[in-house]
């Protein structure tokens, strides 16, 4: 009996290595925490993965506290994997994740789009034939961007100055994503624009809303500049 007992102990020791199941997984913890630190810049642009990694890390620490070391080890490994994925995403998507690059990019294309004809300076809300501004949106977003609010202010002034005018707000999406969902995105964009104008004192009755989804792009090409131009709300006078 004792001989068998020794053999079993020996086998367990060989299989597990020192401290198997009995020691806190410090190496795994260190690696996971380092990977998580490297993934911090993905907090916004890879938000869901980031939240998942954060949760895994939290659960792993809880497991350590409860001395469930095997479970903790697995959780640290998953957290590390998730964090590495986020870091890889951040590297391959500087447009979205690097705040500096993102800001430059937005400035560039805003300048590109508004170049010439339509900008706050060139619009006159006293001109009955004012060329209406075009409002642009971020990917998968329908909130009006701060930089477009001055354009809406002029549009509202124009509508106050010309109270007989009825306006159709046409919402559009870029070609990415489903045709079905993009029809709603276009609608929400047009609605948000209308709601902003209502806040500025324009009567809701003067608006019609229509979404064309991704069916009516104004720029061709499969790049962010074209997509940005296509994610838009336009004003059309209907009377």
């Amino acid at each position: 009996m004792t001989r068998y007992g020794i053999i079993i102990l020996a086998v367990v020791a060989i299989l597990c290595g020192p401290g198997c199941g009995m020691k806190s997984p410090e190496d795994e913890r260190r690696l996971a925490e380092k990977a998580f630190k490297d993934a911090l810049s993905g907090k916004d642009c890879a938000r869901e993965d980031f939240l998942a990694a954060e949760e895994l890390l939290m659960k792993a620490r809880e497991a350590v506290n409860a001395k469930r070391y095997d479970e903790a080890k697995k959780l640290f490994l998953s957290a590390k994997e998730k964090a590495e994925k986020i870091a890889a995403y951040v590297r391959s998507h500087p447009d979205e994740c690097d705040p500096k690059v993102k800001k430059e990019k937005v400035a560039q294309r805003t300048a590109g789009v508004d170049d010439g004809a339509i900008s706050e300076e060139t619009l006159s809300s006293k001109d009955p034939n004012m060329k209406f501004p075009v409002i642009h949106f971020e990917f998968n977003e329908y909130a009006v961007r701060e930089e477009d609010k001055p354009l809406l202010k002029i549009m509202a002034e124009w509508m106050v100055n010309f109270p007989a005018a009825a306006i159709r707000v046409e919402g559009h999406a870029d070609e990415r994503g489903s045709i079905d969902y993009n029809m709603s995105l276009g609608e929400r964009r047009a609605q948000e624009v209308r709601d902003e104008l209502m806040k500025l004192g324009v009567d809701a009755k003067r608006f019609q809303i229509v979404s064309y989804g991704e069916e009516r792009p104004i720029a061709s090409g499969q790049n962010e500049d074209a997509w940005f131009q296509n994610r838009r709300a336009e004003f059309v006078r209907v009377n």
């Binding site: 938000r47 869901e48 998968n140 994503g177 489903s178 079905d180 969902y181």
Partner: peptide, 8 residues
Amino acid sequence: DQGKYNQD
């Protein structure tokens, strides 16, 4: 709960 853009 995977991905950020699931549709259709």
